[in-house]
Write a protein that binds this DNA or RNA. Structure first.
Lengths: 212, 212
DNA sequence: CAAGACACCAACCGACCGGTCAGTCCATGC
DNA sequence: GCATGGACTGACCGGTCGGTTGGTGTCTTG
């Protein structure tokens, strides 16, 4: 992939290098010199294409979020039962954040710097889109009586996204925990988590989750 | 020993200022000058007490984690049914991370910088202790047949801690989401989340969670 | 009191920071 | 042929970075 990187035009090379470095080390820890070197361009050229460091950061966040949102839009959209859709959404979401590690880290970092800060809107955008899709699926299920009426769809959405994000965030840490045996297997993790959630949100009387 | 008192005074002032600034802005964005000014000491004095910036950061993390771990040790320890203990643990954990915002942010930041980095062990320490306590409670409940045998306690522990952490991390963001009405009320949030989890991990046949 | 240990600080250092500038290169259009 | 203008660069700017130096005042100990 370095060959590809060299072939592309300067702006996209700069954006790619900046995204990688910002995600890995954070905004303040990355110098324009480092980005220039990684992108194979001069520092002055970066300032030619982007007004300043902040604008470069915003551009990185913007393109990354646009890409991410585009993929999220398709999550859980296929046909299938409510449970299948929800299960598939969770699995796809977990896969997505694992496949797009850089973007996920970028947004998590941005969320952490929560002051009157730079790219807040983009974090809200991606987070909100995830949230919206999920709540939509859940509301629909609730209308069809496939999940309890007395639960808050937003609550369930947060649980699903939250456990996925925590899996992403801490997977390297609890890889060494003796109690944890799903650290290397997001599929196992996602299946087990949704098993619990689905059972937890079933309507009170139903017992239709018996499998074998 | 008045000398020790004086020393501890300046050192603790430096540690407090550093903890606040590191938590708010991250390691690289905080200069020793800023810490010195916030602590009411000279920069040279900081270097007198701490070998370098990294050691100061480690010291901050160490004291913060020690304090945090001490409190966690008491979570969910009181008498009560399995469900009560679990519910109380979740509520106490959420309260804890909200009360100790600085430390939580500090550790989350450190988790994000996952390379061959500085304070990894402390993040593992706090995270692991939370995890250990929860898994312990869950294992006990499993032994007594109060939750399904076919679930992984570590999975449930991650779900509880994960949703709490995500609540902490994103509460400012989804405060503006129309779908969310628990943003300002961690108690409501914790109660609703545990309602779902508890129902999801009940043994297959039981129906003892009907509302009174 | 002398000597030393210790807390503390102003001034300073080289390195590097984000950002600027004058100028080169080169494709385009007249 | 030649003017225009965007892409691009090396050299440079003021300022800040983490860290050091040389020293002052204060307390303890003999």
């Amino acid at each position: 992939m370095p060959a590809e990187l060299i072939e592309r035009d300067a702006v996209s090379r700069i954006l790619a290098a900046a995204r990688e470095l910002f995600a890995e080390h954070g905004f303040d820890a990355v110098s324009m010199n480092a980005i220039a070197e990684a992108a194979g361009a001069s520092k002055a050229n970066i300032f030619h294409h982007f007004k300043n460091k902040d604008e470069l950061y915003l551009a990185v966040l913007k393109t990354a979020c646009a890409n991410s949102c585009e993929q999220i839009e398709r999550f859980g959209q296929d046909e299938g039962s409510f449970e299948q859709r929800l299960e598939r959404y969770a699995a796809e979401h977990l896969n997505h954040i694992l496949d797009n590690e850089q973007v996920t880290r970028l947004i998590q970092r941005d969320l952490l710097d929560n002051g009157p800060r730079r790219g807040r809107q983009f974090a809200e955008q991606v987070f909100g889109q995830n949230f919206g899709r999920l709540v939509e699926i859940l509301r629909e299920g609730q209308l069809r009586g496939e999940l309890r009426q007395d639960i808050d769809p937003a609550q369930v959405a947060l649980m699903i996204i939250g456990t996925n994000l925590t899996f992403f965030q801490a997977r390297e840490v609890f890889r060494h925990f003796p109690d944890v045996n799903f650290a290397g297997s997001p599929e196992t993790y996602s299946r087990m988590a949704m098993d619990i959630v689905l059972r937890g949100i079933q309507p009170h009387g139903t017992r239709n989750a018996e499998k074998e």
